Simulated assay, not measured.
Amino acid sequence: MIHFGINRTETRWVPFPKSPIPLAEGIEGGDGPGGGERELLLSEMELEEKVAEDVLERAGPPYLRWLVDGQLERLEFLRGRSIVLIGSSHDRNNVDQVCQETKGNYVSWGGHTGGVCTVPQLNLTIANWFRYGMVDTEQAFEDWRGKWESKPGVFANRVTEVFIPKMAEAGLLRKPDLVIMASLFWDDSFLGWNRGNANFTSVQQHGWTFQEMSWHRSRVHSTILSIRQHWGNDLPLMFRTRQLRKRDDHWSLLKIFQLDQSCRAVAKELDVKLFTWGGKLEGFSEYYDGDQHFSLGPSTYIFGDMLFFYLHRAITEGCWGCHQWDD
């Protein structure tokens, strides 16, 4: 389970140990393994807000807290490494929040363009590239968002015209050690715009149609291939899966779930690992805007711990293809 502590720094992924049922000792007439024992009643248990130390020894490493606390000797594997997140405002917020917690230096290229966080203690670089989903032509982008958003809109054009020049300016044109991509909420918006623009408003289907998801899978497939073409087929690549949104008008929850299923299908086909940050936050619904964005808090520490956990796997020889990848 995710243990949400009183303070955000206490947030941890904690396994359930294989242990006996809690017993009450010295109970007359008990029938437990010791003869004088029985199972504890809930009312008899002492509730503690902290997880027992022997359980924490088996928990996921608190990488972000170590970095915040300056325990750099535990984090030498991060030194000189670079990570690129290709996604949306969720990735931008996560990178920005990690940068705040670690007192790193975050340089924004513009809210809907991207930015770079540098953690000087370890010469660690985390870049976020902002994409407008799977929009397939510049004309479609112009008609859909061109009045409000920065151009170009198509991902391949943004790579060559925006991201690579920006990375060059920052002196970061090297192959990253880990890339995490995502594309969900902007796709939801683009599909909705297209349905109305193409006069498909009479469709009564719950959520998206199978044909719309076929288009989406095709675009996700092409995007993954283009990333690998740019950095090589051996690039450690992950797909960040969905988080639930708070509202559910017009099948909003169902549509995001369908898009997520589409992405997972392509990821499995192309051997792209899953970064399941959002799914681990279900039930923790403190948002910035009442819909989907998480503020600085426990979600930041889940993200940071997962980010560095998978980076550690990515740079450890023979580990990227190892077992235990299922969620």
Rank of each mutant, 00 (worst) to 15 (best):
M1T: 08
M1P: 09
R8V: 11
R12I: 06
P22L: 03
A24E: 14
G26M: 12
I27K: 13
E28G: 07
G35R: 03
L40T: 13
L42P: 10
S43N: 10
E48M: 14
E48A: 15
E49F: 13
D54L: 10
G70T: 07
E73V: 02
I83M: 00
L85Q: 04
V98R: 01
V98P: 03
K103L: 13
N105Y: 11
V107N: 10
G110I: 07
H112K: 09
T118K: 01
N123E: 07
I126N: 01
A127L: 07
A127I: 04
W129Q: 00
G133Y: 05
V135K: 03
T137Q: 03
E138T: 09
R145F: 06
K151C: 09
P152I: 11
G153C: 05
G153P: 06
G153I: 05
V162Y: 00
L173G: 12
D177H: 01
A182Y: 12
S183Y: 09
L184K: 06
G192F: 02
R195K: 06
R195G: 03
N199S: 08
S214G: 12
H216S: 13
R219M: 09
V220I: 15
V220W: 08
L225Q: 14
L225H: 14
L225P: 08
Q229C: 08
W231V: 07
D234W: 03
L237F: 05
F239N: 13
T241H: 03
R242C: 07
Q243E: 02
K246G: 11
R247A: 10
H250R: 14
W251M: 13
K255D: 13
A265K: 11
A265L: 14
E269I: 12
L270V: 05
V272Y: 03
L281M: 12
L281N: 07
S285D: 12
Y288H: 15
Y288S: 14
D291Y: 11
F294C: 02
S295H: 09
S299M: 07
T300L: 03
F303I: 04
F303A: 02
D305K: 06
F308H: 02
Y310E: 06
L311A: 02
E317Q: 05
W320N: 00
C322F: 08
D327I: 14
